[in-house]
Computed example of a mutant assay.
Amino acid sequence: MAISVFDLFKIGIGPSSSHTVGPMRAAALFVEALRERQLLARVRRIEVRLYGSLSATGVGHGSDRAVIMGLMGEWPDRIDPAQIAPRIATLLERGELLLDGRLPVAFDWARDMRLLEENLPYHPNAMT
């Protein structure tokens, strides 16, 4: 069985793929599911809950920003890392997350980005 370097390494942001690539992909897949079910326009609020090690080291490893970028429709292997900081700054300034990169949803970082000191069953890196 041949193994490619792309099987071994993942392209993404942050110092830890389990804290950035996974959460960004999960958030982007969530948005994709909403889009496929034609539910995007019905979203009025988003609350991110990071558990376990995503919560404990998430800010330092960029999990919080990765999830937000995923909710904005970005993917770890396609995002321009230089765009992350300005887009997060705009979100913080306006209090508005562009869901799927286009639909404004009110987002108060202090209220809606929850870092919880508990673990969910099955895996220490969890989010809802």
Rank of each mutant, 00 (worst) to 15 (best):
M1P: 06
F6R: 13
G14F: 03
H19P: 02
V21K: 08
R25V: 10
R25H: 11
R25K: 12
F30E: 09
Q38H: 15
Q38D: 13
L39Y: 02
L40Q: 10
R42W: 11
V43H: 14
I46L: 06
V48P: 04
T57H: 12
G58E: 04
V59L: 14
G60W: 10
H61T: 12
G62T: 06
D64E: 12
A66Y: 00
A66I: 08
A66T: 09
I68G: 05
M69Q: 10
M69V: 03
L71Y: 08
M72G: 01
G73I: 01
P76A: 10
I79C: 09
D80P: 05
A82N: 11
Q83A: 15
P86C: 04
R87T: 13
I88D: 10
T90R: 15
L91D: 08
L91I: 03
L92M: 02
R94K: 15
G95W: 12
E96P: 05
E96Q: 13
L97I: 09
D100V: 00
D100F: 05
R102H: 12
P104L: 00
V105I: 13
A106E: 13
W109S: 03
W109R: 09
W109F: 15
A110E: 07
R114T: 00
E117C: 06
E118K: 15
P121G: 05
P124R: 02
N125H: 14
N125R: 14
A126M: 04
A126C: 03
T128D: 14
